[in-house]
Design a protein around this nucleic acid. Structure first.
Lengths: 349, 349
DNA sequence: AGCGTGCTGTGTAACGGTACAGATCGAGCG
DNA sequence: CGCTCGATCTGTACCGTTACACAGCACGCT
């Protein structure tokens, strides 16, 4: 063992070993051009001899006020970050910025309890990215109060946090028009996402009841599109699912068809994943898409193209990149993410 | 603005405002039972008045030597963490521990360059988890030298790092036996993973050439199983793919069938994802599975059950949990992860 | 009265780096 | 020869928190 006691080797130890001052050693590591070749070698040598494990990150951060890491506050259970396709795509975008700028990526687990606010404000990060956050989340304020840059995907709107999203309301308006083409007097189901619900609990969700701002915006857009086309919002069953899983959509839609016997003509889904589940259940129940049933998804992920799904294209990856850039302090613009309706075979022409 | 200048509010400021000592304020936050109800209220009140953003994480960590965060060193491009099904499942396991123990999860991006070693040793984490690491990765030594607990999935073996994995060699041995049941004089292709390769470059990989220890172990196991059954290792084409994508497997296998015209009888894949790609290409080329072609996967993920794939079951989620526990310092055991061959319709009985 | 005990509050010295201002010294130059 | 200048090196004061040891003080008990 080269280590004296149990104490970790510090810059000072290296300086002593090398017969140089602490500052020279510090410069040798951070700004090698500023020291002579000979000193540099002596520092490197002394480090090796003592087994110097590198600069203490906390000391450096405390002094410089930076930690070279972005924080992600993930509104749902952290394991979903790696299983939900929407979240994954978004996070890949954030990660791409981290790779480019040599930043760490720190997930700050929260569970929606008030105590989590301090876990956010006391995270060693230089900026925050929020994902699927509910309206009254106390962590938003905690992040803003740190004075570090903050970005949020979707919403809610919050003073001091840059909001990155497509215009969900306009997009939903367009989607409802496309989706109901060639249909008269339809009965419509909207499969929405609202992770504050327990599974299959959300029958008949009212617009204002939705906890996620994105859900609110889209429902509002659906409503406007439908009413402009002469349909009634009261003919729409809004069903909120707690998880973005095709199995959730399948069991719920099956129940709707078999038990509730609702004569549904169109299903507007808020993710491709849910839409694929609806398609599967439809075919199991002998419904022909799009002639006897119109189905639309959201996001235009890989599954949408494979299944011929009409969907709303937006790039969550790009939105992730934008959020990453904002959190890294590279820009402070409030960007408008683009979107477009992609018409495929799951809706009538 | 309640803030005086630009300086961030500190504990000291709160103490002054509350008319108490710094330590009392510190106790009020960390150990409220130790202060009187009245002091507690005064501290809380002063914090609110001054807009105290919470304890400075770097100062706390510097003093206590802990940062309440686990580090993940991800051998591939960080965006794959959110798209590769194997990685995702493993990371979900790590994340579950972080949620349970109230720890952050920090990804430390590396690109395989020597400079990355310092990014690892200077990360503000309490322990390390390694994923898909090549044999001579310098970040391994950097992590060990910090003295913090380290865990690695798969390999390589490294002094001071707990290795979590199934016995890949024995598993591969069993799999090759199962997979070649009812076959005589077969020509075999093994689709392997080796992310240091550029796409489709790895024709005719030699066992010892494989950069990933897991790949080496499995190839070795395949070889032993085949030779024990009287087959020749020289009849096996080992093809290393750089990415765990079904599209990679599809184009490569298509090339093999059409251009190289190799009369392949069995394909042993090192992931379900690759195996599914092989199945798709096989059916496009009119090959009937399992009668004219045996296909096996690895991991028994959701796709394997859906496609009736014979595969090797292991739980990367559980291995992720184990790695997380080790990195969090909750245990130091060298565990043996379990595995079993799951026989389905893609191989002969 | 004297003493131990528990509760509450306080000063000070770290933790391990970096910013900053300045010291030293030999070379170059009029 | 005196002076400036650049290259190199150094001492010290922080950054903001917590560990630790100790100081009052009220209270109950002998």
């Amino acid at each position: 063992m080269t280590k004296q006691n149990q104490r970790r080797v510090t810059l000072r130890d290296v300086a002593n070993e090398a017969g140089l001052s602490v500052m020279t050693v510090s410069y040798a590591f951070n700004n090698p051009d500023r020291v002579s070749e000979e000193s540099l070698q002596r520092v490197l040598n002394a480090s090796k001899v003592l087994g110097y494990a590198g600069k203490n990150p906390w000391a450096t951060s405390l002094r410089t006020g930076k930690s070279n890491s972005l924080g992600v506050v993930f509104g749902e259970h952290l394991t979903y970050a790696f299983s939900d396709p929407q979240a994954s795509e978004f996070l890949a975008g954030v990660a791409s910025i981290c790779v480019e700028r040599h930043l760490g990526l720190t997930f700050i687990p929260t569970e929606g309890t008030p105590g989590d606010a301090s876990r956010v404000s006391e995270a060693a990060v230089d900026g925050y990215v929020f994902w699927t956050t509910v309206m009254d989340d106390p962590t938003l304020g905690a992040a803003v109060r740190t004075g570090r840059p903050c970005a949020i995907q979707g919403g809610p709107e919050y003073d001091g946090i840059v909001r990155v999203r497509a215009d969900d309301r306009a997009a939903a308006r367009a989607m409802s028009t496309t989706s109901l083409k060639g249909t008269s007097h339809p009965v419509i189901v909207s499969f929405s996402l609202d992770h504050t619900r327990t599974p299959s609990q959300g029958y008949g969700l009212d617009i204002t009841e939705a906890k996620l701002p994105v859900t609110q915006d889209r429902l509002q857009g659906f409503r406007e599109g439908l009413e402009a086309a002469g349909f009634n919002w009261s003919d729409v069953y809004v069903i909120a699912l707690s998880r973005n899983l095709r199995t959730e959509a399948k069991t719920t839609f099956d129940l709707l068809l078999k038990e509730a016997q609702i004569p549904v003509d169109a299903v507007l889904c808020m993710s491709d994943e849910l839409a694929v589940g609806v398609l599967e259940t439809a075919s199991e129940n002998g419904r022909v898409v799009p002639n006897s049933l119109s189905v639309s998804g959201w996001d235009d992920g890989p599954a949408a193209a494979a299944e011929g799904l009409t969907t709303l294209r937006q790039s969550l990856y790009e939105q992730g990149r934008t959020c990453g850039q904002i959190a890294a302090g590279l820009t402070a613009d409030q960007p408008q993410a683009s979107w477009s309706v992609i018409e495929r075979q799951s809706t009538r022409r």
